[in-house]
């Protein structure tokens, strides 16, 4: 999956570079609580295990993963739509 340019009217970004488990998911969860259903969040990670685990956990919580991309070495962007 690829995150396309242009995220609609509102795109919220959460920079989690330097964060490890479980703070990656704790902070993602807290940020999503601020959003309305259907709004999207782009999360930046540099911790490789988080790139697999956070999207899996988000899906388990009912959210939709819209895309994952790796713009550079050891940097990933995950786009999620709040349930």
């Amino acid at each position: 999956m690829v995150i396309r340019a242009g995220y609609g009217d509102k795109m919220v970004e959460l920079d989690l570079k330097g964060e490890v488990c479980p703070y990656t998911f704790v902070k993602t969860k807290l940020k999503l609580e601020e959003l309305e259903s259907g709004e999207e969040l782009v999360i930046l990670f540099d911790h490789a295990p988080a790139v697999e685990n956070v999207p899996r956990s988000l899906k388990n919580e009912g959210h939709k993963i819209m895309g994952i991309e790796q713009p550079e070495d050891k940097l990933w962007k995950v786009k999620v739509r709040k349930a």
Binding site: V20, C21, P22, H47, P49, N53, S57, N60
Partner: peptide, 27 residues
Amino acid sequence: VCAFNVEQRKIGKVDGIVFGSQYDHAC
């Protein structure tokens, strides 16, 4: 398993075992 602890200890992946997170423990 906690993938963060696995990464710290440089352990390789094993088939059938979920390389998960503390969220998996919470579940």
